[in-house]
Design a protein around this nucleic acid. Sequence first.
DNA 1: AACGGTATGCAAATAAGTTGCATACGCCCG
DNA 2: CGGGCGTATGCAACTTATTTGCATACCGTT
Lengths: 158, 158
Amino acid sequence: MTMCQNCDYHQLLTHAGLEVTAHRLRVLEIVGGNTGPLNAQEIFATVCRATPINRVTVYRILDALVQHGLLERLSGGRAFYYGLAPNEHHQRHPHFFCRRCGRMDCLRPEAIALDLQPLARVFPGHIENVAVRVDGVCKLCMDAVSKRGRAQQAHNPN
Amino acid sequence: MTMCQNCDYHQLLTHAGLEVTAHRLRVLEIVGGNTGPLNAQEIFATVCRATPINRVTVYRILDALVQHGLLERLSGGRAFYYGLAPNEHHQRHPHFFCRRCGRMDCLRPEAIALDLQPLARVFPGHIENVAVRVDGVCKLCMDAVSKRGRAQQAHNPN
DNA sequence: AACGGTATGCAAATAAGTTGCATACGCCCG
DNA sequence: CGGGCGTATGCAACTTATTTGCATACCGTT
Ligand SMILES: [Mn+2]
Ligand SMILES: [Mn+2]
Ligand SMILES: [Zn+2]
Ligand SMILES: [Zn+2]
């Protein structure tokens, strides 16, 4: 559900005070057009399929977009994942991270109800973000595993 | 609140079917005795102060303890943090990660109420864990920043 | 004491992200 | 249009966190 028809990426960039470049537009389109958050490697590979780009440029673009509030940075496994930041069109929502394949999916906002009030009232520091991450094995991986299990069983029946 | 008087680490290891070694006991004591989760580097350094140990051994011990359910692995910044896994004495709870100093703190379990039912009912994959992580700047860092700010202001009053 | 299985150490490799510096590009001025 | 300025990009090298392969040491059992 990260996909967004309502976002004009060009306008998002200028409105954030960022120069509009082909690379930046491309990164925004890729992240915004995907059904779930992507990591830098995936974004790099996707841009590369059409236009050559340096890895470092991807990292720098992602940093800039996060800094300016266009993307949100999520942790999954040992890498960061990037999705469109919550805004008027996109409600903040939790994510699912598959430990097996490393894919990250967006969950519906109401999937996990969460009440921040008790914390916000007493916490002494400065709260910038609250993330809910569900870890496990996605359906695709589960199917793959059980299929492989059956194949092995048929081939080598103990 | 990770600290635990009720846990006999020696017994936890044997009960999990793991050989009891000095290194493993030490790692468990360090993690269990700290007020919040620690990353591999911090654990390594702490063990080292008393006994020489190889960095890789720390990683392998942490993996084993997580595999066998004695520790939980949390993501914070670009590293993993380790705390005692929830059990009969330790209720699962959210954590706070300070972006500035990298310290991770445990929050009270009721700090964030969260209802998993809606998700568990419809999610097609296998859910292994749900983590709530609050990011921001801890009180210590806030104080340090505002102190530095005042100092600069006094020295260079624009 | 010999044996088989873990645990540990050491070196090297990998994965993800960062930094320094040089060049290229976009945009404004005259 | 051409020069100048500031940001964006590329490239190489570096850092940090973690993993892997292989050899050795240790442990509990026979
Ligand atoms: Mn999302
Ligand atoms: Mn904790
Ligand atoms: Zn999967
Ligand atoms: Zn801090």
